[in-house]
Simulated scan of single mutants.
Amino acid sequence: MTDRGRSALRTSADTFEVGPSKLHWDGEKLIIDIDEISSPPIISRVRGRITITPKALTEVELPLANDGTHVWRPFAPLSDIQVDLEADGWQWDGHGYFDANFGTRALEQDFNYWTWGCFPHSAGATAFYDVTRRDGSTFETAIQFNPDGAAEHVDAPPLTRFKNSLWQVRRETRADKGAMPHQHLNMLDAPFYSRSAVNTQLNGEEVTGIHEALDLRRFASPFLKPMLAVRVPRRSGWRFPT
């Protein structure tokens, strides 16, 4: 991830460009071309292509705040993904998903904490959102996505704590009563955020999906925010070639 200025942004009906990287929708699949330089401590070029082919597109738009200032849009929770980066061992394909969050206010203005997870299973995929807002109210939802793109709200199994992240971010997700979720693979560990592959049990089926936990009270700390400038390079003067 690289912070860039307005001069590095270019959009059209089917393409979104930020600096030398871009996303392009060709009508059937999302093609993501990456050309970046990673941040310390290991500074190296990250270049290649990721292709996401949805099994179906959904129509779901889920407001996370009562006034509609934040919306979750799961475009394609059931997808095939192909990764082809210019580095040894960074070529693979498998199950993927594509979603996005949209908002008109900073996340830390409206939320204290949330967990999210998307777990593929034999009947499609189920996603969970559990949110604690700044005003003390909570929001929770469980949505079942079918292979044809149809979606419906379903009853969620119990919210279950599991081991904190390396930075001691609290983690929890949904699991059948008596089952214990656990981390299968660590993907990103930050003082305020954890992303990982997690094993859990849903309706008697052992499943592995993507899980995130976000502590926005930590993120809002004036002692922590400056650390982002170290981990996220800034290229404010980048411009497209003429």
Rank of each mutant, 00 (worst) to 15 (best):
S196G: 02
L188T: 13
S194A: 14
R174C: 04
A197M: 14
G178P: 12
E172G: 00
Q201I: 10
L188I: 13
H182G: 00
S194G: 06
S194V: 10
K177C: 02
T200W: 05
L185W: 11
A179F: 05
H184R: 13
V198C: 04
E172T: 07
Q201F: 00
K177F: 08
H182T: 08
Q183E: 11
M180I: 12
P181N: 04
H182E: 13
S194W: 01
Q183G: 01
E172P: 01
T173V: 09
Q201Y: 02
R170Q: 14
S194Q: 09
A190Y: 05
V198T: 14
R170G: 10
R174W: 05
H184M: 09
D189C: 00
Y193V: 01
F192H: 08
E172S: 14
S196Y: 03
G178S: 13
H182S: 12
T173I: 09
E172Q: 15
Q183A: 04
M180Q: 15
R174H: 12
H182N: 11
H182L: 04
Q201R: 15
N199V: 11
R170L: 10
L185Y: 10
H182Q: 11
T200I: 07
H184N: 11
N199K: 12
Q183F: 01
Q201V: 15
T173N: 07
L202G: 01
T173G: 13
S196W: 01
H184I: 03
N199C: 10
S196A: 15
R174Q: 04
R174N: 03
R174P: 05
